[in-house]
Amino acid sequence: MHHISNMNRFFCIANAILPIFCVVSAGMFPVGLYYALIESPADYQQGDTVRIMYVHVPAAWGAMICYLTMAMASAVFLIYNQPLANLAARAAAPIGAGFTLIVLVTGSFWGQPVWGTGWVWDARLTSVLILFFLYLGYIALANAFEDPDRGGRAGAVLALVGAINLPIIKFSVDWWNTLHQSSSLWRIRGPSIVPEMLLPLLLMGCAYFSLFVVMMILRLRGLYAGRLLRQMRIAAASR
């Protein structure tokens, strides 16, 4: 764990892969949107409204990946007291909150023509709203203490407790009778979505994931620089 979490080694790797993911993200978004808005067919029931899916669904994947990253980093920080894990959890939280907000807003736009309302207290929608509040709660707790490590531990506990919401989000449409449709992609028998729609969905998923990696590295850089400045101020004050 010490080998993996060495700051200098980590940022050497992160700085090397950052340009790659910048190029991938910048290229995937226009290509994915082109296929989503122009090449993909309209749905036989929803018409062109279904194109919201290509922004909504990958954002939902990103929100889940961000929270899983935050929860895993929080666990590592609590168990091994690794500063890099604390920084990773802090870096992931605002990104995940942004992705979750996109999910809620685009879901409301999608629900209005399909369900006749922009919001219902559906199990999937409610659990995603809880996910958004968990992100905000973590951010508030992590920044509520002058000592970043103390705030990180408080936020880490909330992140781990809130991780129970992830399987609820995933399986809510199977456990309860909800308006939200079941998964068309992650199925044992294979995707039920047609290839013409699957391609732009996967392209947009790759674009969101690449953007997540880019923002994580940039935020980790900023948080690490802030940590170094704080240590320098403490050292200067103690002289």
Rank of each mutant, 00 (worst) to 15 (best):
S40Y: 00
F21D: 09
M197R: 12
R233G: 07
V50H: 03
I169S: 00
N15D: 13
P200W: 03
M1K: 00
R51C: 00
L166H: 03
D174R: 11
I217E: 08
S108E: 10
A97S: 05
Q112I: 08
Y35K: 07
A85K: 02
L33I: 05
V157N: 05
Q45K: 09
I130G: 01
I217M: 02
I168Y: 01
A154I: 13
L125S: 06
R153Q: 07
A75V: 08
A89F: 07
G96N: 10
G107F: 01
F21S: 05
S182E: 12
L158Y: 02
P200G: 03
C66A: 12
L179P: 08
A140L: 14
Y135H: 10
I193C: 09
M53G: 09
L33T: 03
G190S: 12
H180C: 09
M72F: 02
Q46V: 01
M232P: 09
L134D: 07
G137K: 08
R51V: 01
F132N: 00
L78P: 05
L201S: 06
W176F: 15
P113V: 02
V103T: 12
S127H: 04
N6C: 11
M197T: 04
G47W: 04
L141R: 14
A73I: 12
L220M: 06
W119K: 07
I95Y: 00
T126F: 11
N6V: 11
I20W: 13
V157H: 00
L201A: 09
I234M: 14
I52L: 15
G111S: 08
I193V: 15
M28S: 14
G155Y: 00
Y208P: 02
A207K: 07
M53A: 14
